[in-house]
């Protein structure tokens, strides 16, 4: 495919008098992971809601595969191959895994008034797709609410891949996970990229972002701090810019005095700020 899968130009959104997002540019090609980074309230959620069709942008242009589009509903976005895996996962916890996997896109058989769900096939396809993503030992008949956070993420990603998504939006998929589970989810993110999807990966963890991302969009208080290719920015730089530079410089300075480098800055909170 030539040209980017997704291009945002000067996109903005206001809620009443509050401008949640303004003048954001982003480009994403197939087989690429674009990370969107920012602290809480930076506008990450607003941005993905625009791409996912939950909210419509007031300003700027959204292009999908070179075509200018207005995404008025999640259905619009889904029809254009944009799949979103939400932080809260968009699952119905009491429903079985297979029913969640196919929710809104049930496989049907039969004709006319006898048109009905092909449950046997849905169970089978769900099982196969999960196995293809390396998720094994999940009983697809179980309510999905009984799975672990990482498992649920992976079911959601497998679902998006199965339904031919070209653009996969992941809303903080690793935020609520432990170190090991987060690592597993990151592998599936890479697997999705390897299958030729464009991935928009929202996170506030620069370590996770830098490990998998090809380009990085930094947001702060609803404004873009720029979009960088991986070659242009180091993990240290990414962390610094994300934290707003100055504050982090201060912390680094304090820590530096104690002989702790910024690479180990994960324990910053212990010292208070």
């Amino acid at each position: 495919m030539s040209g980017p899968l997704l291009r945002l130009t000067g996109v903005g959104k206001s809620y009443g008098a509050v401008s949640a997002l303004a003048a954001v540019d982003l480009e994403l090609s197939a087989g690429e992971i674009a990370c969107v980074l920012g602290d809480n309230g930076a506008g990450k959620s607003t941005l993905i809601k625009i791409i996912a069709g939950v909210h419509e942008n007031d300003l700027g242009e959204v292009e999908v595969a070179g075509e200018a589009v207005r995404l008025r509903s999640p259905r619009d976005a889904i029809d254009r191959g944009i799949a979103t895996v939400y932080q809260d996962l968009a699952i119905a916890p009491l429903m079985p895994v297979w029913a969640n996997f196919f929710l809104g896109r049930e496989l049907l058989k039969g004709r006319g008034p006898l048109r009905r769900m092909d449950i046997t096939r849905m169970r089978q396809v769900c099982h196969e797709e999960l196995a293809a993503m390396g998720i094994e030992g999940v009983d697809v008949e179980r309510p999905i609410g009984g799975l672990s956070g990482g498992q649920r993420q992976c079911v959601a990603i497998a679902r998006a891949v199965h339904f031919g998504a070209r653009i996969l939006i992941l809303d903080e998929p690793t935020a609520a996970l432990g170190v090991k589970q987060a690592g597993v989810v990151l592998r599936y993110v890479l697997a999705a990229r390897a299958r030729g999807l464009g991935v928009v990966f929202i996170t506030h963890n620069p370590h996770h972002a830098h490990a998998v991302g090809d380009r990085f969009l930094l947001l702060q208080r609803g404004r873009s701090l720029g979009c960088f290719a991986k070659a242009e920015i180091s993990l240290e730089d990414l962390t610094r810019r994300m934290a707003g530079g100055v504050e982090l410089d201060q912390i680094t300075h304090e820590l530096g005095a104690r002989g702790v480098g910024p690479a180990q800055s994960a324990g910053v909170d212990a010292h208070g700020s």
């Binding site: 939950v54 968009a90 119905a92 929710l103 809104g104 769900m117």
Partner: peptide, 22 residues
């Protein structure tokens, strides 16, 4: 058996999720 039935469970159990998946 009907897809509509699946949707009934979903809109009751998790309306926001149901909307998000179309």
């Amino acid at each position: 058996r009907a897809a509509f039935g699946n949707w009934i469970f979903a809109v009751g159990g998790a309306p926001l999720s149901a909307r998000a998946v179309g």
